[in-house]
């Protein structure tokens, strides 16, 4: 295992890896396309490179390099990006990428992971390192409540049901999983039983778990810290449309850029809250029972 970095090793903590293995971290400067291709070359010679930086640079700025040098080549490169989504906060829209899931899930051969919390991020590192082929994993800078346990199983390609329910299903990824659980608790008080699914693998999609949710609960709300254009909402919608169509509501960034602000302020302003998920559930139930 080796790590390549792009002048962000301190803020995303890969510097800790360099402290343990000084010869195995390559600091390549503010040159992300080069960083990705160098990782590909290392992988071609048998290394397992983790390329890590901020999501906006590790996905959008390097898109065609990832496409040609990592995915088309099917090389064993693991792209782990922090600072995804609105919760980057005060840095503003230039740094708040809400489109990276859309970009990465469109690339053939790419595995796309969005862990819900710290323990799951660690499992993503292990699982990505253990599998062969390209991986893109994105997570947020902000603190998030821990919703998974260290002992929980984790398998790439498998969504986990965190809470069972029968009236509606809330499918979230990343920081929105905690908000789905919060929304489910609110719905329970209204005697609405909500299933909560942690969709930490966006690609390959766990079609069986999604299909079962559609059949058993009859309505779905998705929640993501990402644009609703080609994000997990779109992925789930196409899956259920092909198998068992049910009403769906998508909580996420509504095809707009973000702005400066504190993480919580931004989530509130852009509608990425438990309240919006509850509203989504009401909307889905209304449409289903019409």
């Amino acid at each position: 295992m080796v790590v390549v970095g792009a002048d962000t090793t301190e803020s995303i903590k890969t510097i800790e890896f360099a402290k343990a293995f000084p010869d195995r971290l390559f600091q390549l400067g503010i040159a992300e396309p080069n960083m990705i291709s160098v990782a590909a070359g290392l992988a071609a010679a048998g290394k397992i490179p983790f390329a890590a930086t901020y999501s906006v640079f590790g996905s959008a700025h390097t898109y065609n390099v990832i496409r040609q040098n990592v995915a088309y080549t099917n090389l064993n490169v693991k792209i782990f990006c922090s600072h995804a989504g609105l919760t980057v906060g005060p840095d503003g829209a230039t740094h708040q990428i809400n489109e990276d899931i859309a970009l990465m899930r469109g690339i053939p051969r790419m595995t796309v992971l969005v862990p819900a919390d710290g323990p799951e991020t660690a499992k993503c590192v292990d699982a990505a390192g253990a599998m062969k082929g390209p991986v893109y994993c994105r997570f947020s800078r902000t603190n998030v409540p821990t919703v998974t346990a260290a002992g929980d199983g984790f398998t790439i390609g498998m969504a986990r049901v965190l809470r069972d329910g029968f009236d509606v299903t809330l499918i979230g990824c990343g920081i929105m999983v905690a908000r789905c659980l919060e929304a489910a608790a609110t719905l329970e008080k209204e005697r609405i039983s909500a299933r909560v699914i942690n969709l930490s693998t966006v690609k390959p999609l766990d079609l069986a778990t999604i299909d079962r949710a559609a059949r058993e609960t009859g309505g779905i709300v998705t929640a993501e810290e990402h644009t609703v254009v080609h994000g997990i909402g779109a992925a789930v919608a196409s899956a259920i449309a092909a198998n068992h169509p049910v009403p769906i509501a998508m909580v996420g960034v509504q095809d707009v850029f973000g702005e400066s602000g504190e993480a919580e302020e931004l989530l509130h302003k852009y509608g990425l809250t438990a309240e919006k998920i509850v509203e989504g559930a009401h909307d889905v139930l209304k449409r289903r029972d019409r």
């Binding site: 396309p33 080069n34 291709s37 590909a40 070359g41 290392l42 992988a43 040609q68």
Partner: peptide, 13 residues
């Protein structure tokens, strides 16, 4: 423009 970077990765390995 990607080949030289790829070669850098190979040479490092």
């Amino acid at each position: 423009g990607q080949g030289l970077s790829f070669s850098v990765g190979l040479a490092l390995a």
